[in-house]
Design a protein around this nucleic acid. Structure first.
Lengths: 343, 343
DNA sequence: CAGAAAACTGGAAGCGCTTCCACTTCTCCG
DNA sequence: CGGAGAAGTGGAAGCGCTTCCAGTTTTCTG
């Protein structure tokens, strides 16, 4: 029933009404040169009177420019996207795209079917470029993405090598800050909960933390792998406590996991920060409202989104913007205060 | 430099290689009837050999079906989208769309420019349908959306009247549950922090709460308007405390505002739930991790997204799925426990 | 086995816009 | 005032695919 779309006026009708050729009309709506003032005005009037809006599909077909880019979030964790991290990225991406006339296609590729669609999307020129986030290490998508001739910007490095275009946060440096903070505040039995290590982010954070401790000569008590989710963090904390003598500091590769760990610590009757100091990673809104408020490595998530989009736009326009590493810093709150706590 | 896209094989080439007409080839890739088995196989082979993928733009132009729908989030609060609520909606929408071959275009229309784009999008047949969320009361977008002949599904009722298609949570009923819970647990001085009242959600929640109290004969101590954000909630709480003698219960129209209110209460030295019981609305992940964990009205956010998408798909296909109201329920946690607390 | 219905086939006309190209008309300056 | 170069103009050929239509071939019935 709804299937008889009111016919929209076409460029031909505009041209006819304005008494000019379609070519001229086209020039006007794209405000290209080589149109006399008179005709230009005539066309503009006709456009107004008819309520003409160019059909983007037809434009796309003729120009071979779709006018859209995709942001693909690829992961195995179906719930991962719920992490406010992505919302923040999207806000950044969206803000940058708003300056252009590119639409944003969002693709959650966490099921086999979703991946197929992403693959198809990549091959079919349905978008002018792609931003790819959260690739697992063995994800074939990265390579696929690079094979296509579409510009692809990675959000965070894939494990499969350094792509031509990417923007990432300084994960390694940030994790190192966490280590240094622990050392500085007198913690000597630090442990860590990582993300999936087949992920570049997780690996970089693990590496940075280890490095930081090594430099200070403090041994790492233990490491457990989480999955960036809260429940994963809680479980990892259980394992950590079971396997190792009481740690006095914990660094997690994400705030979500820190929150999970806090839960476990509370259950176990361990006090934060008195018994265990905790540092997370991300510093999104939720970190401010844990009990106690979370000390965490801050990364500029919105900027990350913004820069990804900008880089992609640049690439589409034929520039070759280099990769970009965004700085991280430590946000100190009560879960790992600046001064050593009396235990 | 990137501007010379490797030419993709076209349907013509496939047809030629398979020794059939383009018509036949087209039928095969759309697996339409009226193609002999032999030709079908020939075409399939050619497709495989050439790595042919149909060009969606050309298909769209020919069929007048774009193969994409947009999810527009319209608001004045630039930060609103960061609310995990939307992430959850998107997950639902995305899950539903995955069953179809529709792409999801995400549009954050929180700036004037963004609104322009949305308007243009609506007029230009760049999508086959639209899901619209978080309209402000006076938002002209709603009406605009209905004027276009594109199917439009609303997420949450707009104030401007009941649209043909929408899905909403039972906000009024949920708020009523909160009121009843307070009454049942002996609270007699309840206050409320609402959202922007020019918003249907906020209005419905306010109304439900008021109603619930009225039915039990308990007077509402005071009301302050927030803006669905955490900071707004904190500020509203300040005003509430300044304007009214100590409330013993607080209902907020969102978890975010509840979290803000908790902060203020803590600062003011008021204990939750002993001095003030608190109930929020939404029940997303964050509600579990406040201190104390938040009692809140649960709404099935992911389902909301899923159902919006399903409804839209139905509408696009020419059905007329009626509106849908999703149930809400109370999730009881420590901020407003089931048994009256000794004060 | 005749005749009708059902299944195939492919040519051609679009879908709505851009852009190359071959002209025609102005402008400007020595 | 003549001629070169810039500006303006519109016809026509696409962009890559779908689909109507007219005709051809098969397959079924009775």
């Amino acid at each position: 029933m709804e299937s008889s779309p009111k016919r929209m006026p076409t460029l031909d009708e505009v041209a006819q009404r304005a008494g000019v050729s379609r070519t001229a009309a086209s020039r006007v709506i794209n405000n290209a040169p080589h149109v006399s003032r008179a005709k230009r005005e005539a066309v503009e009037r006709a456009v107004r009177e008819l309520g003409f809006v160019p059909n983007p599909t037809a434009q796309a077909l003729a120009t071979r420019r779709v006018g859209a880019v995709v942001l693909a979030v690829s992961s195995d964790e179906p719930g991962l996207f719920a992490d406010p991290f992505f919302a923040e990225v999207i806000v950044g991406v969206s803000a940058a795209l708003e300056q252009t006339d590119l639409e944003l296609i969002l693709l959650l590729a966490n099921t086999p079917r979703g991946r197929d669609r992403l693959e198809r999307l990549l091959r079919s020129r349905r978008a002018d470029g792609v931003m790819l986030m959260a690739l697992r290490g063995d994800d074939p998508l990265g390579r696929l993405a690079e094979q296509t001739d579409l510009p692809v910007v990675f959000g965070g490095l894939p494990l499969t090598g350094e792509p031509r275009w990417y923007v990432d946060a300084d994960n390694r440096g940030g994790a190192r800050l966490a280590a240094e903070h622990f050392v500085r505040t007198g913690r000597r039995r630090p442990a860590m909960i990582t993300g999936q290590l087949d992920t570049q982010v997780a690996a970089a954070r693990e590496r940075g933390f280890t490095e930081g401790l090594a430099l200070a000569g403090v041994p790492l008590l233990g490491v457990e792998a989480g999955d960036f989710t809260e429940d994963g963090g809680a479980a990892a904390m259980e394992r950590l406590l079971a396997a190792h003598p009481a740690p006095d500091a914990l660094f997690t590769a994400s705030d979500a996991m820190a929150i999970g760990a806090l839960r476990t610590l509370r259950t176990r009757g361990l006090r934060v920060p008195e018994d265990v100091a905790v540092i997370g990673f991300n510093d999104l809104a939720s970190a401010r409202h844990t009990a106690p408020p979370l000390t965490t490595v801050h990364q500029p998530v919105r900027s990350l989104g913004r820069e990804m989009a900008r880089m992609l736009v640049g690439a589409i326009e034929g520039n070759d913007p280099g990769p970009l590493i965004l700085p991280t810093r430590l946000t100190v709150r009560e879960s790992a205060p600046d001064v050593p706590t009396e235990a």
